[in-house]
C-alpha cells in the first residue's frame, strides 16, 4: 500500500510513480489531492491492483487499462475508460463526456450522471463483455454506434428529466437496459424497445448487485422496477446505403 500526495504534481510524475509501484509489487494505491492529472491508470495491468483517487482525476482516466480497479471518489472529467480492455472503474460522482469510447471489456460504474456520447462505439469481443452502469442520467448521443456490450441506465434520484437526444443512433450491437420507460420517439430508428423478460433480469441482476455493492447502496430499490431493453434492429443498419461502382 502506498499513498501519493498528488498536489501540484504533473501527470507524468504521478503515473510514473504508479507504474513503478506496480512493478515493485504494490497492489493498493491511495492518491490524494488529485486535480486534473490526465491518464491515471492508463495502460496498466494487474487484476489485483486498486487505485483509490481523491480529487478530480483528469481526462483519459483508465484509458487502455487492462485489469486494475480505479475508484474515483469525486467527479471525473472526459474520456473515462477510453478503449479500455479489462478492469473496473468506480465513479462516485459524475462523469464527463465520451465515457467508455471503444471499450472492449471491463466495467465502468457511475453513481451520478454522465455527459454526452456515453458508450460510443463500445464493443464486445469473444468472451469480453464491456459494461457501463450509470446511476443518474446521461447527455445526448447516448450509446452512439454501440457495437456490443451492455449499458444500463438507472435514472436514480428519480430525475424525470430525460432530455438526451439522438438516443442510440447507429447502434448495431449490444444491449441497453433502462429502468425507466422513455418516449420512444426520441430514439433513432436503428433500435427496438422491449420489456425486459425474466432471462434478462436474471442476467442483469448479478451486475446490478455488483454495482450496488460497489457503492454500498441498497439493491432492492434498483431491481424492483421493471426494466426495458433496447436492441439494434440490425447488425448492418447501413447496408442499403451503398452501391458498388
Amino acid at each position: 500500500m502506498i499513498t501519493i500526495d498528488a498536489a501540484g504534481m504533473h501527470y507524468k510524475e504521478l503515473n510514473r510513480l504508479i507504474r513503478e509501484g506496480i512493478e515493485k509489487g504494490i497492489r493498493k494505491f491511495f492518491l490524494e489531492n488529485v486535480n486534473g492529472q490526465y491518464y491515471i491508470g492508463d495502460g496498466i495491468k494487474g487484476d489485483d491492483v486498486v487505485i483509490n483517487i481523491n480529487g478530480i482525476p483528469g481526462n483519459d482516466l483508465g484509458a487502455f487499462m487492462d485489469g486494475p480497479t480505479l475508484i474515483a471518489n469525486n467527479n471525473v472529467q472526459d474520456n473515462v475508460g477510453n478503449t479500455m480492455n479489462a478492469g473496473k472503474i468506480l465513479i462516485k460522482g459524475d462523469a464527463g463526456d465520451v465515457v467508455g469510447y471503444g471499450m472492449r471489456g471491463g466495467k465502468i460504474y457511475i453513481l451520478g450522471n454522465a455527459g454526452y456520447r456515453v458508450g460510443i462505439h463500445m464493443k464486445g469481443y469473444n468472451e469480453q463483455l464491456p459494461i457501463i452502469i450509470i446511476g443518474g442520467k446521461v447527455g445526448s448521443f447516448f450509446a452512439e454506434y454501440m457495437a456490443g456490450g451492455i449499458i444500463v441506465l438507472l435514472g436514480l434520484n428519480d430525475s424525470d428529466e430525460f432530455d438526451s437526444e439522438y438516443f442510440a443512433s447507429g447502434m448495431h450491437g449490444g444491449t441497453i437496459y433502462l429502468r425507466k420507460k422513455i418516449d420512444f420517439s426520441k430514439y433513432s430508428k436503428d433500435v427496438e424497445l422491449y420489456e425486459a423478460d425474466e432471462n434478462d433480469m436474471n442476467f442483469l441482476k448479478k451486475y446490478l448487485i455488483d454495482y450496488t455493492d460497489s457503492f454500498n447502496i441498497s439493491s432492492e430499490e434498483i431491481t424492483a422496477k421493471p426494466f426495458y431493453k433496447i436492441v439494434p434492429s440490425s447488425a448492418r443498419p447501413y447496408a442499403h446505403l451503398y452501391t458498388s461502382a
Partner: peptide, 27 residues
C-alpha cells in the same frame, strides 16, 4: 450544438466559474 468541446461550470455564492476542465475550477 453537438458538444464537441468540453465545458464545465460551477457556482459558489456570487461566483460563477467556467472552464474546459473541472479540475481548473477545483484548483
Amino acid at each position: 450544438r453537438i458538444k464537441l468541446r468540453p465545458l464545465v461550470a460551477a457556482a459558489m455564492g456570487d461566483f460563477t466559474y467556467v472552464a474546459s476542465e473541472e479540475a481548473a475550477i477545483r484548483a
